[in-house]
């Protein structure tokens, strides 16, 4: 038997996890700091108190972020799943187009997606021979434009994840359903969607993660409407971030850990029963 020796991969992993979690720990520690400056002076709950009593705009920003993450993820999941199902089982004129166009966003810097949507939503207008020409889609930057942008960058991920799940599957099940007289709608609801569920769920969770994490694209399409990242960016840009942000971040970090553990049990349940 070989004796347990120094493991390079284990050491690297632990070091990387420390690296990943130290900033989060710092956020949480400073949320309990009595002082405003980044110097620890004593324990205090003052920032939590302010968060719950006088931070209405921050909460609004927070709920805007969550609402956008959830709605954009649901939209991306529905559209992406349908596309994956179509592309997997059918041949049709749009197929190559769909395959190509869902691939391009993955190989473009995200700033380009953000600024191109900004250009598009600004609806560039100019006069050509005395006629006013509008290019694009004039929309006030705000909730709707962020939602559209987020759904757009999440879509390819859902599409590819569901497609992968379908690739693993024996399509004779579908044929059997059809041979037994199921309609397209019945097959979709009772066979295809249940078997793609793990792919759909990972697609949805990935979308949520990407949406909550994103700053670059949101920055270009959010206008004056404040999401949480924009609120933080604004304060950082001006030079002073209120520790109330630490308090909110701490709550969010602990909240996501709880959610992640719940999701893990949920995924285990799915794995055991599906």
């Amino acid at each position: 038997m070989q004796k347990k020796r120094f493991s390079f991969s284990k050491t690297s992993f632990i070091a990387s996890m420390v690296f990943l979690f130290v900033p989060l720990v710092v956020l949480i520690v400073f949320s309990f700091n009595a002082n405003k400056a980044p110097v620890l002076t004593g324990f205090s709950l003052v920032w939590y108190q302010r968060l719950f009593t006088s931070s209405r705009s921050l909460w609004n920003a927070f709920f805007t972020s969550i609402t956008i993450a959830v709605t954009a993820s649901i939209t991306a999941t529905v559209i992406g799943t349908l596309a994956a199902i179509g592309v997997h089982w059918h041949k049709f004129a749009l197929k190559t187009y769909v395959q190509a166009i869902t691939y391009i966003p993955l190989v473009l810097p995200e700033i380009i997606i953000g600024m191109s949507l900004l250009a598009f939503f600004s609806g560039s207008h100019f006069t050509l021979g005395g006629v006013s020409v509008n290019v694009g889609f004039r929309l006030n930057l705000g909730w709707l434009t962020i939602f559209i942008a987020h759904a757009t960058f999440c879509l390819p991920f859902v599409y590819l994840m569901v497609l992968a799940r379908l690739d693993e599957f024996d399509s004779s099940i579908i044929e059997a359903a059809h041979d037994l007289g199921a309609t397209e709608g019945q097959t979709l609801l009772k066979v295809i969607i249940p078997i793609s569920m793990p792919g759909i769920i990972s697609g949805f969770l990935t979308s949520l993660t990407l949406s909550l994490e994103d700053f670059t694209i949101t920055y270009f399409v959010s206008g004056v409407s404040s999401t949480l990242p924009m609120a933080v960016y604004g304060q950082m840009y001006k030079g002073g971030v209120s520790p109330v942000i630490n308090a909110l971040s701490a709550i969010m970090i602990l909240g996501t850990i709880v959610l992640a553990l719940l999701a893990r049990n949920f995924l285990k349940y799915i794995a055991a029963n599906g």
């Binding site: 089982w89 059918h90 749009l94 166009i101 869902t102 391009i104 949507l117 560039s124 559209i148």
Partner: peptide, 29 residues
């Protein structure tokens, strides 16, 4: 396995979405 081809119906939403909110903006810039 299908007599009828529903592929276009399934893929239409994504094709429209990406044309309007991705391809056109990209071409614009």
């Amino acid at each position: 396995h299908r007599e009828r081809n529903y592929g276009t119906i399934y893929a239409l939403p994504i094709a429209l979405w990406f044309t309007v909110f991705f391809l056109v903006p990209l071409l614009v810039i």
